[in-house]
Computed example of a mutant assay.
Amino acid sequence: MSRAGALSCFLFLCLTAAPLPAEPVRVASFNTELQREGPGLLLRDIERGEDDRVAAVVAVIARAGADILALQGIDWDHEGRALTALTARLDAAGAPYPHRLALRPNSGMASGGDLDGDGVPGGPGDSQGFGHFTGQGGIAVLSRFPIVADAVRDFSGTLWRDMPGALLPAYPDGSPFPSQQAQAIQRLSSTGHWAVPIALPDGTTLTLLTFQAGPPVFDGPEDRNGRRNHDEIVFWKLYLDGAFGPAPPDRFILAGGANLDPQDGAGRHQAIRALLADPRVTDPRPASEGGARAGDQGHAGPDRLDTVDWDGPGRLRVDYVLPSSDWTVEGASVHWPGPGDPGRDAALRASRHRLVWVDLGR
């Protein structure tokens, strides 16, 4: 063999022996707002194929190309038929998600008590999480990688009063609001708090932490919803502290809806500020051209970071994808195309929320 041939062979062996760099993992969160007013209606609308918003949600998800997707605003049913129908639509659109998880949420789960203090038990505000029927506006996880189902941890049954330092509402005289009996059964999670291990192709495990907090409004001077929203967010700091069992043994990423902006709008902003400042997580500050060009609204927070466009409160940052600090962030964005950009119409039609994604490298 010639010297040149030997050198070529040597270089080939070196290159093939070296481990190939792992592809970035894209993790996204999207509040689809696909919830319906009655059980089975979402399944009907997905299967009929005539609903413009369902089609727009499918288009947004397909364009984003996430490997792991935390969904909110998706109705739960016992057999998972609505989620199965949605994933079939996604598969047809070229966005297959062979692995999925949808545990029963607290939304619409009857409590048997008067939890909202209106004196009339049995209404949607008396469910463990606001809802007109079991599973309305639940959460789900879609993944291109296997979900380690037997290691999933569901904290949705945690009672609010059992959370360390819980900001439980009270009347001016200090008595429990709306009653001691209500606080004895009230769960913390409006929908759920899940820790979902996912097996990555390189043999490692990513733990997805996901939730959808309730809004910090629609209550009275007791600030029941504002306090609960605060504690739903603070839960994750306590979880990482080990207050609810072992913290994730591997790298994690928190993806979900906090319903709280760090600076603008209603709510106890210190909850999300503290989470964003926690040294165990990285805030990639995903941004968008659409948000940046949507027009000044006098808010303290940067418009480019906004993830929702509500009537009244305006545009706010309320949806988050926060990797643990040991990841390398290779990219991040809010899927909010600017005027004239591809995908803009579908993004605006799908939901008032925008899909948020982060690319993670080893």
Rank of each mutant, 00 (worst) to 15 (best):
D231F: 10
V329A: 12
S288N: 04
L238V: 11
G298S: 10
G226N: 02
A266I: 03
N229W: 03
N229D: 02
A266P: 02
A332I: 01
G226H: 02
G256R: 09
P279V: 00
G301C: 05
S333E: 15
P246F: 06
G295Y: 14
D319A: 14
S288T: 05
P323M: 08
S324K: 01
L276Y: 01
Q270D: 12
R293L: 15
P216Q: 02
E232F: 13
T282R: 14
A258C: 13
D326K: 00
T282I: 11
R317T: 15
R280P: 06
W327E: 04
A332L: 00
G298P: 05
P249F: 15
G242I: 04
H335P: 07
V281N: 03
A292K: 15
N225P: 11
H299C: 09
P249I: 15
R273V: 15
G265M: 04
D223S: 10
P279T: 01
Q263R: 11
R227V: 04
T307C: 02
L322M: 12
I272G: 05
P246Q: 08
L322E: 07
V281H: 01
R273D: 14
G290Y: 06
P248R: 03
P221Q: 07
A287Q: 12
S324N: 02
H299W: 14
P323D: 10
A274T: 13
D326E: 01
P215F: 05
G242A: 03
T307Q: 00
L275T: 13
A300V: 11
R304G: 01
H335T: 14
S324D: 05
V321L: 15
W310S: 12
G295E: 07
N229E: 01
G301I: 04
L254C: 03
A247V: 09
G301W: 13
P302G: 06
H269Y: 01
Q263S: 08
V281T: 04
S325R: 07
R285V: 08
R224Y: 06
G312L: 00
F252K: 00
V234S: 13
P313H: 11
D309V: 08
H335L: 10
A294V: 09
V308N: 04
F252H: 02
G226C: 09
Y239L: 03
R317S: 14
P215D: 06
G331A: 12
L260G: 01
S325W: 07
